[in-house]
């Protein structure tokens, strides 16, 4: 039982790393980024390739850095020029980016599944409540919690964090008050994309790598964002942990319905509370 809860936390942690990037980008650019799952996938492959030559840790760091740079480029070259258009246009463009990245990954790494193993340091199991539990999953939980704690502290106590919180509720007013939201957006989209890359590498030893590996987890991340309340960082953390448990226990006790459960939760939450757990914005 405890083992199952921990499995759920590990998966929820991955969802959080992705969802928080969506929340960051949604807050500032007011768009749903359909490319986010593909960026997760790209981060995974970049980590895989670096790890194949060097080691897992360099793969992790290299992917984080590369994806942050790609995020900054995404904001400067795509999102900013499109800001005057209908948000729907930008959303469709991010969908286009998803398709391009999938084609790119297929061309470079091929269609067949690849796998990446955990580093020696993190392989093996530990005994928890008398049962074996993979060390690597503890690592996943640790990374997610560290990111959650770091991000929360940054948002709460730093100046830039204050600007991010303000613009996640009202980017126009925040900018009118003098916050350079173009620069802020570079930071935010860079950070969100970097976290997608990080979660891609962290997830790699747990799942098979393929050009479409980001699709299902992206949909669950969307559900996390909606359930948590659009634009809410703490809501995303709570929702990710909840959906991690549902994902995991659903797979054990209701396997035929397990992929449906997160959707049902979303519909239920939207009926009960249309703005999500912590939602303020309609």
């Amino acid at each position: 039982m405890l083992i199952q809860v921990l499995n759920g936390i590990a998966y929820g942690g991955l969802l959080y790393l992705l969802a928080v990037g969506l929340v960051l980008i949604f807050g500032l650019r007011e768009i749903v980024n359909f490319a986010h799952g593909a960026l997760f996938m790209l981060g995974s492959y970049i980590g895989f390739s670096i790890a194949a030559v060097f080691n897992f840790w360099l793969g992790l760091a290299g992917s984080l850095v590369a994806m942050t740079v790609i995020g900054i480029f995404l904001d400067a070259a795509v999102l900013r020029p499109l800001r005057k258009h209908d948000h729907m246009v930008t959303v469709l463009v991010t969908f286009g980016i998803l398709l391009v990245l999938e084609a790119f990954a297929t061309a470079v790494w091929g269609k067949s599944f690849r796998s990446m193993s955990a580093p020696d340091l993190l392989s093996g199991t530990v005994q928890i409540a008398g049962e074996p539990f993979p060390v690597y999953r503890l690592f996943v939980i640790g990374v997610s919690l560290c990111v959650a704690a770091g991000l929360t502290a940054w948002l709460r106590f730093s100046r830039v964090g204050l600007y991010v919180r303000a613009s996640s509720v009202d980017p126009t007013t925040t900018a009118i008050l003098g916050v350079d939201t173009d620069r802020l957006s570079l930071i935010v989209v860079g950070l969100g994309t970097g976290l997608a890359g990080l979660s891609g590498v962290v997830a790699a030893p747990l799942m098979a790598l393929s050009p479409t590996m980001g699709n299902y987890i992206l949909i669950e991340s969307f559900i996390v964002v909606v359930v948590g309340g659009l634009g809410s960082f703490s809501g995303a953390l709570a929702a990710a942990l909840l959906i991690g448990q549902i994902h995991n226990f659903g797979a054990i006790y209701l396997p035929w319905a397990s992929t449906m459960l997160p959707f049902l939760l979303m519909v239920g939450v939207l009926i009960w509370r249309p703005t999500g757990f912590a939602g303020k914005r309609t």
């Binding site: 303000a166 509720v169 925040t174 009118i176 008050l177 350079d180 173009d182 303020k280």
Partner: peptide, 28 residues
């Protein structure tokens, strides 16, 4: 002009409807 140009040029605006950010404290 970008949204923040006026403020950065020394022109502060009190918007109609006040534009208080609801998720921030008074001090923030």
């Amino acid at each position: 002009p970008r949204h923040y140009l006026a403020a950065r040029s020394g022109i502060a605006i009190v918007l109609q409807g006040r534009g208080i950010l609801p998720n921030l404290t008074i001090e923030e």
